[in-house]
């Protein structure tokens, strides 16, 4: 495991998580959550958990982002926090 890459991706994960929770638009939050999931997938492939990384890439970054966008489309983009 190469620690500078690991540390950089861990920082990006935290930034994406805080960004997804702080942005004042739910569509933006769902897209940022998709990027968070993809960063998580990179982290797992660094750790050698290839099966878990594959699952997260298809499930977390793929389907759950689509589900979030669909739900936001059916409700509203407005949020106060």
């Amino acid at each position: 495991m190469i620690w500078p890459i690991d540390l950089a991706i861990l920082t990006l994960v935290v930034v994406a998580a805080i960004g997804a929770l702080r942005v004042k638009d739910l569509l933006g939050a769902s897209i940022l959550f998709g990027s968070y999931s993809f960063m998580m997938c990179l982290l797992w492939s660094i750790m050698g958990a290839v099966d878990v990384a594959f699952t997260e890439a298809s499930v977390g970054a793929g389907v759950s982002t689509v589900l979030f966008v669909a739900a936001v489309f059916r409700t509203s983009r407005r949020t106060r926090d």
Binding site: A17, L21, L26, A29, S37, E56, F68, T79
Partner: peptide, 20 residues
């Protein structure tokens, strides 16, 4: 968080942190 979708995002972040 006050918004329900934000709460769901938070739930998923909690979950992925434990998986990590």
């Amino acid at each position: 968080k006050n918004n329900l979708v934000k709460k769901i995002v938070g739930m998923n972040i909690f979950q992925t942190a434990i998986i990590l």
